[in-house]
Every structure is written in structure tokens, then in C-alpha cells.
């Protein structure tokens, strides 16, 4: 894959190649992910952004091998530190989960078992992977809560999830995920359930992880604002495929896929002139059963052309790649316009 040829000094931590996830159903095989390939490098934050049905959450679950449905068919390879996760035995995979790759979820209220204290749940993870006494595990749990900015951590450890506020719960969840010093943290919509001022706190915490813990983060989100705030690289997904990916300033600054462009324009601006009407993308994202042939975005795309009847591969422009026939011939015009606009705003 071209992305791997980019000269970079950072080592590759996770290398996903041609990941396909589909489900057998009464109506035939439903494809959720189609040939998704990407890499996560050491100490970087990769954002995977998309709307409902884009397959972003499925990607994260596939990496963790948390798709338990017996009807799921998963192909491709997920190489983590040189080992293909899809080939590991359940036991080997279990050993990796939580220790090497950890995950946090959207709603920490439902993602934590309601009947155990925060401290108990962190201890449980520590003791699943490390040979620690209960006492030592509790001490470490309190320490972790403190590092995550939980006030009075020793007391917080004795509280049940429902007794904490949303922000503190998410901090506790992150403390638990980081308890065994994982190299990769997968954060699935970690701030979606939170208020905006609390979201800012959690995003700040996530960004600190790579320096304080040396962890890479794979951030799953639907919010372009969150992407812009914390990520190094961005991967935009649409309807089970990669629409566009590249370094954040490039993808957000000069998008080369019409979907990325449309998504960015759909967000009402906080600065500058208000548009009379928001430039919106017509229609809504297709369901996995109703994906159009060829480029899945073409029914909603204002630049649709004949070529779109066949699925475009990822075309590369500089550091950026987009699966759009327009990107075949260099940067589309609008990308330049957007670039001028955004640099103008930033100045």
C-alpha cells in the first residue's frame, strides 16, 4: 500500500491490510467493511471519521477482535507489532487485549459494569495481566485515577460508576484502559456523550497520552471538530470504504474527496461569514444493504460522472489519498479554494 512508502521515522505499530467484514444473513451476505487498509504509527493519533453506517466502529471492533457474532466473516490481515491478530488463538488474543491494545467507549455509564466500584474494575484489569496483590493493584488504580485528573482519587476508587459525573467516568475509563500501559488505545467516540466543556478536558487528556504514556491513539469519531483538535492523521470513511486519508492539515485544509469537502462544509462555521444556507450533502448515508454499485458516494455527489460507475481505487496526491476519480488528476480545483479559504481564516 502506498501509505507505507511514505518515508517516516516513526515505526509502524498497527498495519491493517484489506480488512473486510461481512455478515451472513437471510438476505445474503451484508458487507460492512470493504478492503480497508491503514496503519497506526508509534505515538500518533489517527482519527477515523465517518457518519453512521460508515464502518468506523466496526473497524475498531475488528482490530480488537471483539466481533463475536458467529455469522461474521472477517478477512485480511491486522498486523500488530509483527503478529497477525486474525491468526492468534483466542487465548493469545485475550492476553493482548487490555495489555497491548486497550479500548474506551462512547458512554462510560453503560461501558462499566454497574455493580462494581471504579477501583475494583481497574484492579480487575491490572490483575488479569500482571501478577499483583490486591493491595498493590488498588494502589496503582488510585495512582492512575490521579494521573487522569480525577480529584480525590482514593475516594473516587471506592465509588460506583453511577455515582460519578460523565467526565469523571470517562477519566476512570481511560485510567482503566491505560492501566497496563498499552501501546495502542482505541477510543470509540470517547466524547460524544459528554458536554462540550468536559469534552475539551477529555480531548486534552487524550492528547497528553502519547507524551506521558507513549501510547498511540486510534480515535473513532463523527465530529470533524474533534478530529481537527487532536489528530495527526485522518482517515475519512464512507459506507464501508476509505474515502480519504492523509495528514490532518491536508485532509481538512484541502480535501480531495467530495465527501470530505461536503462534510466539512456541512458544519456551520463558528467564525467568518455565515452562509445564507449551509452547503449540505443531499440524501443520507446508505445502509449496508442498500449500498450503490461503483463509488458508494456517487448518488449524493455533485461531481458525479460516468467513471463513478466503477469503484475508484485510492489515488495519491502528495501525502493525501482519496478514492475518487477526480483525485486521479491531481488536486481538484475546490481543494485549492478550500486551502486558500482556510489559510485565510487561520491568519
Amino acid at each position: 500500500m502506498p501509505a507505507d512508502q511514505i518515508p517516516n521515522t516513526a515505526e509502524t505499530l498497527l498495519d491493517v491490510q484489506d480488512l473486510c467484514v461481512s455478515f451472513r444473513s437471510e438476505r445474503g451476505i451484508i458487507r460492512i467493511l470493504e478492503n480497508v487498509s491503514f496503519t497506526v504509527r508509534a505515538r500518533e493519533i489517527l482519527s477515523i471519521v465517518g457518519e453512521s453506517g460508515s464502518g468506523k466502529s466496526m473497524t475498531s471492533l475488528a482490530v480488537m477482535r471483539l466481533i463475536t457474532d458467529p455469522n461474521a466473516i472477517i478477512t485480511g490481515s491486522i498486523t500488530y507489532k509483527g503478529r497477525d491478530l486474525l491468526k492468534l488463538s483466542p487465548r493469545e488474543m485475550r492476553d493482548l487485549r487490555g495489555r497491548e491494545i486497550a479500548m474506551i467507549f462512547q458512554d462510560p455509564m453503560t461501558a462499566m459494569t454497574p455493580v462494581y466500584t471504579i477501583g475494583w474494575q481497574i484492579e480487575e484489569q491490572l490483575r488479569a495481566h500482571q501478577d499483583l496483590s490486591r493491595h498493590a493493584a488498588r494502589a496503582r488504580a488510585v495512582e492512575l485515577l490521579g494521573e487522569m485528573g480525577v480529584p480525590a482519587p482514593a475516594k473516587a476508587a471506592t465509588r460506583y460508576p453511577h455515582q460519578l459525573s460523565g467526565g469523571l467516568r470517562q477519566r476512570a475509563m481511560i485510567a482503566m484502559a491505560l492501566s497496563c500501559n498499552p501501546s495502542l488505545l482505541i477510543a470509540d467516540e470517547p466524547t460524544t456523550a459528554l458536554d462540550v466543556t468536559v469534552q475539551a478536558q477529555i480531548l486534552e487528556l487524550l492528547q497528553r497520552l502519547r507524551t506521558d504514556f507513549g501510547s498511540s491513539v486510534m480515535l473513532i469519531t463523527h465530529d470533524m471538530g474533534v478530529v481537527a483538535t487532536v489528530s495527526d492523521r485522518v482517515m475519512v470513511m464512507y459506507s464501508g470504504i476509505i474515502a480519504e486519508r492523509g495528514p490532518k492539515p491536508d485532509v481538512l485544509g484541502q480535501p480531495t474527496h467530495p465527501y470530505t469537502l461536503g462534510l466539512l462544509h456541512s458544519i456551520p462555521p463558528m467564525h467568518g461569514e455565515k452562509p445564507h444556507r449551509l452547503p449540505s450533502i443531499p440524501g443520507s448515508p446508505p445502509s449496508p444493504m442498500g449500498r450503490p454499485p461503483g463509488c458508494p458516494f456517487q448518488p449524493r455527489c455533485e461531481f458525479r460522472m460516468d467513471a463513478c460507475a466503477t469503484r475508484p481505487p485510492l489515488f495519491r496526491n502528495g501525502m493525501q489519498e482519496a478514492s475518487c476519480w477526480l483525485a486521479d488528476k491531481g488536486l481538484p480545483d475546490w481543494a485549492h479554494e478550500r486551502a486558500i479559504r482556510t489559510t485565510g481564516e487561520a491568519a
Partner: peptide, 14 residues
């Protein structure tokens, strides 16, 4: 509140 709103600014920084 305004400051906390994450904007899709390509050069955004927390």
C-alpha cells in the same frame, strides 16, 4: 463555552 467548541480548523490545536 465558545472556546471549548472544537472547530474543523486544519491547524486546530487544543
Amino acid at each position: 463555552l465558545i472556546s471549548a467548541v472544537p472547530e474543523p480548523d486544519p491547524h486546530g490545536n487544543i
